[in-house]
Design a binder for these strands. Structure first.
Length: 212
DNA sequence: ACATTAATTGTGT
DNA sequence: ACACAATTAATGT
């Protein structure tokens, strides 16, 4: 575990901190589509991604609809967790492994200590906050302007990027529920994107040539 | 290889 | 949003 940590984070954190992470952290792996953290769970650990990718979703308690907020990738932490450990609130979000994912769980009290002890950790935490905030703003823009088409295309490229393949395997229905839209709308928009030459459609499969 | 069926996708109102 | 048509994949014979 120490080895993996070093590979991924040697330029981010100082050696001492990495060693401490390795000895304290709890190594876990999750298979595709498993829920890592659900809404209402109290947060005792903060995740540090080693490999894979996690999607962060919100759920509407009214209609049970889901909404995908953003993806966490290697080198990211969950901003929600950062928030919760300082305020002792419950999770407001659901985290699901998008693909096979490895991560290290670190007890939240440790991360408070580290903020005091390690400069690199402080920087890391603030950076994460910042990127997350920006991504959220972007997401809100798209929502507010009701621009589902852009949201859809971003969703597709993101997904392809994570899978490291231009081919993504989803049905229109699945996309609709993640974007909290209806299947028909998605189908129509996908058609349009195909006509524009941005993607190619097949059954259960969408080709996204320019995903990087 | 063909027919049947279920699921996914396309389109008009 | 709804209903229905068309297409495709999966399965059995």
């Amino acid at each position: 575990m120490l080895k993996i940590l070093k590979e991924r984070y040697q330029y981010v954190f100082e050696a001492k901190l990495i060693e401490e992470m390795a000895s304290i952290g709890n190594y876990r792996k999750f298979k595709e589509d498993t829920i890592i953290m659900d809404i209402g769970d109290s947060i005792e650990y903060m995740p540090l991604l080693l490999s894979g990718s996690i999607k962060i979703m919100r759920e509407d308690e009214e209609d049970g609809g889901e909404l995908l907020l953003y993806y966490l990738e290697v080198g990211d932490t969950c901003a929600m967790t950062l928030n919760c450990c300082l305020r002792k609130t419950k999770s407001q979000i659901r985290a699901v492994a998008e693909i096979y994912t490895e991560l290290i769980m670190i007890p939240v009290h440790k991360m408070v200590d580290w903020i005091i002890q390690y400069e690199t950790w402080r920087v890391f935490v603030f950076e994460s906050y910042n990127t997350r905030l920006n991504e959220m703003l972007e997401a809100i823009d798209n929502l507010a302007f009701n621009n589902t088409e852009e949201r859809l295309y971003k969703y597709l490229t993101d997904k392809a990027f994570i899978a490291k393949s231009p081919n993504i395997i989803v049905t229109h229905f699945q996309i609709a529920s993640e974007l909290n839209s209806s299947r028909v709308v998605i189908s129509r928009l996908l058609k349009k994107l195909e006509r524009d030459g941005k993607i190619k459609l097949h059954r259960n499969l969408i080709e996204v040539p320019n995903y990087y």
